[in-house]
């Protein structure tokens, strides 16, 4: 596992976007050769999407041969509801780039058979040859996607009932009315993300500091589901200074000392060579 500590949220956004740019460029996608990318929603990755849009507009990257899979979606929320993840992905990313709509996959929380929808999603990932890079954010309680505390660390895509804390945290997006917050969501499992060749987790802000400490410094624990990625061969945590506040000084110093190596990851060092860097 690598921990990359950067100055603030905007540097994290830029770094993450450059990392995606590097991975896609290196892969050189084309007809019959698609780069498969897993994507999150929420406040943390917003800056990364904006940078990626800039890169696209500057002609530095194309998403024509990129296939995307989103992590999660609410159940029963209309697709064009401003809080739906379809809406988010369309407005914050998809409409600005050249992605092929047939290859931008978001779980359908309005599918008549939700279990079948989850199965379909897993099958699609498998058909696409697995996810090459999965990007995620985490919640203050250390959840990744909607894999809330106590979720199985080998879980697959499924329907989840949301914890009261999550409803409470999300009600601000639904007119402060907790009864309007969808109670269920479809989400990829921890196992689904673990299967990706590479995983990049973005963590910014003081309110995520405890979750980062639990994820990095303590053992693998289903109460902090993101800690599962300690066991991933190519996991990358990218955080800002604020998010390190609960880490030990030793931990921070150790990873900061490696920052020179980390910068190579967004330079044009071939991926295979990078994997032996640390």
């Amino acid at each position: 596992m690598r921990l990359i500590i950067l100055e603030d949220a905007s540097v994290v956004a830029d770094w993450a976007a450059r990392f995606v740019l590097q991975r896609i460029t290196e892969f050189a996608p084309g007809p019959g050769r698609r780069f498969v990318l897993g994507l999150p929603t929420g406040g943390t990755p917003l800056g990364m999407y904006r940078r990626l849009i800039d890169f696209y507009k500057e002609g530095r990257v194309s998403f024509k041969y990129v296939t995307t899979f989103n992590m999660d979606e609410y159940v029963g929320l209309p697709r064009d509801h401003p809080e739906s993840y379809h809406y988010y992905m369309w407005n914050e990313f998809f409409k600005h780039i050249d992605i092929d709509p047939a290859h931008a996959h978001v779980l359908d929380g309005n599918a008549p058979n939700l279990v079948a929808e989850c199965k379909r999603f897993e099958d699609l990932i498998a058909e696409a040859g697995g996810v090459r890079l999965f990007i995620g954010g985490i919640g203050p309680d250390g959840h990744i996607a909607f894999n809330e505390p106590g979720s199985s660390l080998v879980s697959r895509t499924r329907v989840k009932t949301l914890a009261y804390d999550t409803l409470e945290a999300n009600k601000r997006f639904f007119g402060n009315d907790i009864s309007k917050v969808p109670r269920q969501a479809l989400t990829v499992g921890v196992g689904t993300v673990m299967d990706a060749k590479e995983v990049m987790i973005l963590i910014t802000g003081v309110h995520k500091a405890l979750a980062l400490a639990k994820a990095v410094e303590e053992g693998v624990n289903h109460m902090w589901t993101v800690s599962a990625f300690q066991q991933h061969a190519q996991a990358l945590f990218v955080c800002d200074e604020d998010a390190t506040l609960e880490l030990r000084v030793k931990t921070v110093k150790y990873f900061k000392a490696l920052s020179g190596e980390h910068q190579k990851m967004i330079a044009s060092v071939p991926v295979l060579q990078q994997h032996v860097l640390h």
Binding site: R79, H86, W90
Partner: peptide, 13 residues
């Protein structure tokens, strides 16, 4: 037309 619907439902450019 609503381009979001075109994108997700019809999946055409």
């Amino acid at each position: 037309v609503n381009p979001e619907q075109v994108f997700y439902v019809e999946q055409v450019e």
